[in-house]
Simulated scan of single mutants.
Amino acid sequence: MAVLDPRPTAECPVERALLVLDGKWSVLIIRELLGGPKRFTELRKALQIGSPKTLTERLRILEHQGVLTRTVYAEVPPRVVYELTERGQSFRSVLEAMAAWGDRDLTLR
């Protein structure tokens, strides 16, 4: 079974998932966007990310990986909206399982 393989490779589906979800911000960005499209400032405020550079980098990576789309509206000032793709939406069940596990098994003591 690939999941139990002690030698992670690109063949391992868990490793492939972790390459997309690298770092906590990616998962939290997806969590926020599961509620619907958001602007950069909305994401930054909801996630309490101090550095806009950090958020910008993660958004670019997730866009490149096909997890979200970035739409720029020709307005003054310009409006940019981020939204999950079908690939990003498919993460919902994984996030719900993580939330249930965290709620049930990782209660703060």
Rank of each mutant, 00 (worst) to 15 (best):
I30L: 08
L33S: 07
E32T: 02
L21G: 13
L55Q: 04
K24N: 10
A10D: 15
T71E: 14
T54K: 09
T54D: 06
V76K: 08
M1E: 04
E57G: 00
E86I: 03
M98T: 10
T69G: 06
E86Y: 00
R79S: 07
A100N: 07
E15P: 00
E86M: 04
V81C: 02
M1N: 08
L62E: 01
G50S: 15
T69R: 08
L106K: 13
E63Y: 04
E15F: 15
M98P: 01
R60F: 08
G66L: 04
G102W: 12
R79N: 09
I30A: 02
P8F: 06
R87K: 15
K45T: 14
I61E: 00
R58P: 00
K38D: 10
G66P: 03
T71M: 05
W25I: 14
M1L: 08
V14C: 05
T69S: 11
G35A: 14
R7Y: 13
W25R: 14
E63S: 07
L4C: 12
L106A: 13
T85Y: 10
T56L: 01
L21N: 03
L28E: 13
A97I: 05
P6G: 11
L43C: 04
D103Y: 14
E11I: 01
P13E: 12
A99F: 06
V76P: 02
E11G: 05
K53D: 14
E32F: 06
E75C: 10
E32Y: 01
L43I: 12
E63D: 07
E42D: 11
Y73V: 14
W25K: 15
R44C: 05
G35V: 03
L95Q: 01
S51F: 11
G23I: 09
E57W: 13
P8D: 09
D5A: 11
I61W: 02
L18G: 12
R16T: 15
Q65L: 15
L84I: 02
R39P: 00
R79K: 14
F91N: 06
W101M: 08
C12F: 01
L34F: 07
P37D: 06
L28Q: 03
T71L: 10
K53Y: 13
A2Q: 02
L68W: 06
S26D: 07
C12W: 05
E86L: 06
S51T: 12
D105Q: 13
D103A: 11
T85M: 10
R109H: 10
I49Q: 07
D22M: 00
V76Y: 05
M98D: 09
K24S: 04
T41F: 14
Y73C: 02
K53N: 10
P13I: 15
I30H: 01
L47G: 08
L19M: 15
L68A: 07
G66C: 12
P78N: 04
L62Y: 02
L106D: 06
V94P: 01
P52W: 04
P37H: 01
G35Y: 06
R16H: 09
R44L: 09
R92G: 10
P6V: 08
L33Y: 08
D105V: 12
V67Y: 04
F40C: 02
